[in-house]
Amino acid sequence: MNHPEIWMLAAAGLFGLGLYSLIIARHLLRQLIAIKIMGSAVFLVLVVTAGLVDGSLDGIAQALVLTGIVIAVAAIAFALALVVSLAETTGSISLNPDDDDGR
């Protein structure tokens, strides 16, 4: 962690990449993958900033990232299950911008 700037830039790049893909992708699996990538960027920031506090590795930050990963796995599993049952009931694997008003 001698050059935190590099890691922060990498994290910023990943976050932007994910956000861009989330916005332009139509397929729900692609959108979920985009969210996963953004999540990885956030965890990278957590690990790097924690290293900055006193120069040594910070156990709490590692534990936070671990907890964060567990939550991300659970959330993505839930999202995948939801997308699968959406595909089963409606036969569609993307969200149509026209159907959002629920009329």
């Binding site: 729900l28 999202a79 939801l82 409606t90 969200l95 959002d100």
Partner: peptide
């Protein structure tokens, strides 16, 4: 559909 949008 509303749930998937909400979740994302």
């Amino acid at each position: 559909r509303a749930a998937v949008r909400y979740l994302l």
